[in-house]
Computed example of a mutant assay.
Amino acid sequence: MALQNAGDLSQNNLAKYLKTSQANVKNILDILEKTHLIFSIEAYGTSSKHMKKTKKYYFATSSIRNALSENSGNIINDIKQYEGILLENHVASILFNFTQRGNDCFTLYYDANKKRNVDFILQRDFKNPVPIEVGRGRKDKKQITHAINSYGADYGIIISDTTTNIEKHNNIIYVLPKTFSFL
């Protein structure tokens, strides 16, 4: 799991890699979720979309992912790509913990659209969703603008080094990864 992107991970792929049944993999993932080493998020959309699309799995912290990845021989040679994967896991972890606080009814999803999808969608109760794009380095606004329009969102958030401060341009909020980490 530590050597794959969250979107590339499926129970079927894991079963093939581990040479075991999908039922066994499902049990292992359930146990890892119950012990809070990993968590999963569902696709944004209707109930039927939740059933059709596989869950995405993330480690509870990016440090767990990094330790396991380093221990099992990190196969990603591009350091910026690897840091981007760790950053996405880090943001997923913070957002997931935010949804678990219990005071507010926030739900975290991933964007299952095949074209121009964003990394996360955060929704409170039945209000408009908030698309969130995460990236290492500078990010353009094409993906987030498409998601804002597709989902009828009031605004979107880009977490990257695109700006040097928290800034709002039209309906897009830019946040530095270090600043986001303080949430």
Rank of each mutant, 00 (worst) to 15 (best):
I132R: 03
V134T: 06
F39K: 05
A153R: 02
G135P: 06
I173P: 03
I76D: 03
M51S: 13
F98T: 07
A43E: 04
Y174F: 15
Y58P: 02
K139H: 08
K114R: 11
G102I: 04
I94W: 00
I41S: 03
T162Q: 08
S72V: 02
K55H: 09
S47D: 10
E70T: 13
Y110Q: 02
L108Q: 04
R138F: 11
N103L: 13
I172R: 02
R116D: 14
K56M: 08
G45M: 05
L18I: 05
Y44M: 04
G137F: 05
L3H: 11
L14G: 06
H90W: 06
L122M: 07
Q22L: 05
L86T: 06
Q123E: 14
L68M: 14
Q11K: 15
Q123Y: 05
S21E: 12
I166V: 15
N117C: 06
G135S: 08
A23R: 13
A6Y: 02
T61I: 04
K26F: 12
K19I: 12
Y174N: 02
K139C: 11
D161F: 06
D125V: 04
I121V: 13
P177W: 01
I94D: 08
P177D: 08
S10I: 02
F106E: 05
L14K: 01
N113H: 11
G45T: 05
Q4S: 12
T179L: 12
